[in-house]
Design a protein around this nucleic acid. Sequence first.
DNA 1: TATATAATCTATAATATTACTCGAAAAAAT
DNA 2: ATTTTTTCGAGTAATATTATAGATTATATA
Lengths: 144, 144
Amino acid sequence: MLSKKTKYAIKALVVLGKNMDQPPMQISKIAELERIPKKFLEQILLDLRNAGFLYSKKGAGGGYSLNRDPKEIFLVSIMRITDGPIAMVPCASLNFYHKCDECHQESTCGIRDVFVDVRDATLKILSETSIADIIKRETTLISV
Amino acid sequence: MLSKKTKYAIKALVVLGKNMDQPPMQISKIAELERIPKKFLEQILLDLRNAGFLYSKKGAGGGYSLNRDPKEIFLVSIMRITDGPIAMVPCASLNFYHKCDECHQESTCGIRDVFVDVRDATLKILSETSIADIIKRETTLISV
DNA sequence: TATATAATCTATAATATTACTCGAAAAAAT
DNA sequence: ATTTTTTCGAGTAATATTATAGATTATATA
């Protein structure tokens, strides 16, 4: 399951992606729009900022805005910041690899072998889908 | 991440899949072979038994064996018993659907739309891969 | 029939993760 | 100065996961 943290992160980025030519938006505004607990969102946006996805400005008239083109922010990057690994087993993870406790021999593990395939299939979608794509999907879904 | 419960379940089924023409195997034997805490494995096997995948016999000479052809036991079914939903968001789940707390309008949610695709890709693999396939992959990996 | 074996059942403890909260400090605008 | 808003460090509450304990039931066999 996707953590709420990740879901909130994506939602916030989508809101900011729709706000590109506007002045920065405040945490409280995003929290209200998306029904996200404000203090929790605070932490999440800070993580995204420290990872370079967001620009922030303190003080009156401050807030958050995207630091990149929404077309260049992919779900996979967000998820790695907020949830960590994409793979379902640690031994199949590209960015967060570690050995399974009970594993006898990784190189011949059939379970790992399957979940490498699952990882690749998931990764393909998540690394092709950007914040801009999500926004586009929403408008497409509305018009259907 | 796959829970240990699921990983243990798959491992146990693989062991039993290799033990098809032998007398039933005891929990303690499986636990030892796969380094799984015995009492925990007990619960897991019981779940799998109640779901119809295992045959069990009490008393001396008792134990567990597969109730079906390993070719007919697919990962997706096991995972639904031990972990529940395959989808990463509840609103994209086929068997464990429920609405997201913060969702405004599900039908136009771009996040859901992407994670339905992820679910389908994952589901394809997990519902094509059986215990027999995992055993086959292991022997293939050994010979490489 | 007694004994040993092995699954079953119910409950609970230990640990980890997730989700969220608090309060104060720092930066910026007016 | 004062207000606004992000930043920072820490802490807590809720929930889920992983594991353990102990008694009970079923079966085989000597």
